[in-house]
Simulated scan of single mutants.
Amino acid sequence: MRVIGLISGTSVDGIDAALVELEGQGYDLSVTLLDGLTWPYPAELQQQILALCAGEPVGLERLAHLDDAVAHSFADAAQALMAQAGPAELVASHGQTVFHRPVGRPSLPGRGDIQLGYSLQLGRGAVLAQRVQLPTVSDFRQADIEAGGEGAPLAPVLDLCLLSHPTERRCVQNLGGIGNVAYLPPWDRQSPAPKVLGWDTGPANSLIDIAMHTLSEGTLAYDRDGAWAAQGTPCQALIEAWLEHPYFLQPPPKSTGRELFGWDFFQRCQQDARARGLSAVDLVATLTEFTAASVAQEYRTFLAALPDRVLVGGGGSHNPVLMARLQAHLPESAVQTTDEVGLSASYKEAIAFAMLGYWHCQRFAGNLPAVTGASGPVVLGHLSHPRLSL
């Protein structure tokens, strides 16, 4: 089956679209990336999304408009990819996360109410299905949340299927806006699938991107090739202070987003940097070092043994300074991109949702309860069919 996977991550830097050929059942899959592209948001829509993620108040009518506008941008990405690479039979869309609240404590003392997690993605599947005139699977997080999970991270199941090794312990580290990891024990594929650990490690590019946009007065969206970080000197005292954030003390399963590591946290970082007289490039270097240090600290705190190899995907895999610092913090492990073992680092997350959409059609559970904290395995996603002819 030819499936288009779509996702825009917490960096809101564009829509990744991957056309994938999938064959097989369950974990016994053949997955081939046929083509991919990154589709830019219209500038005004991107700014509206970022403002919403930063907590700007929004009326319900405007929120509905944004929901549809994101869906149309996702449809544009899917149609551009099909024009470039040929038709698909199914679309699987993660959408654009604008709010994520993990599983909470009882809401009122003494009552024992269970507060389920909450996660909101814009870009509704029904609109997308109508635009592309294809069955569309969307809303992937909800079923896991209803089972008591965090609804995130969901990509580690792809890592289990495609990146496990018969003798190596591997960590697959995504460095998108937020970082997440899958810890893969050795697996020879002749035995039952092992227990995979996974969680959000904290910020990846989110703080660096906000810094670049702020410090460049809107002219730069990210630190291309780590050029600013390479010119600066990290402040170790600030890194150690930021690593005391309560999120880093919380054991997995756990997930996070811009609600914790977004604009508010960056403002604290900027104030701290000013108090110590850091230059703009010093601040970017410090945030880059903080990202690498936080990933390594999460591994050392919550893994029984460090991995033999760390395979990195997401936008951060293209930042040589960030990659070098991650290797420096994990000298016991070989740090590489997933490209080096045959899986596109740029489109890995889009491939994951194509796979989850394919599994939805097979009624195969796509979550990993040990990763999300769900009470058990569940089929992910909601299927929308085109009902109108265009």
Rank of each mutant, 00 (worst) to 15 (best):
L260H: 09
G179H: 02
G95I: 03
A18T: 12
R224G: 00
P42R: 14
V12N: 01
T256A: 13
G381V: 12
Y27K: 11
D200N: 07
T372Q: 04
L311C: 13
Y27Q: 12
R224L: 05
A304L: 09
D308E: 02
I351F: 01
T10D: 00
A305Q: 14
G117F: 05
A129H: 09
R62P: 00
V284E: 01
A273C: 00
A147T: 00
R268T: 15
A18L: 07
A152H: 08
Q173Y: 07
Y118P: 03
F266Q: 00
L158M: 15
T286C: 08
T167A: 06
P192R: 15
L158F: 10
S8E: 02
E298Y: 08
D264E: 13
V91R: 08
I208M: 13
Q121M: 08
E61A: 10
F353I: 03
S317Q: 09
R387K: 10
P192N: 14
Y347R: 03
P109C: 15
D28S: 08
F99R: 15
D200Q: 06
A374N: 08
W263K: 15
Q84G: 04
D28I: 05
A304C: 10
L356R: 00
A129M: 11
H65L: 13
G59S: 10
I210K: 02
L160C: 12
G226T: 01
P102K: 13
L45V: 05
H385F: 06
G262F: 00
Q297G: 08
F290T: 03
R101P: 03
L81E: 01
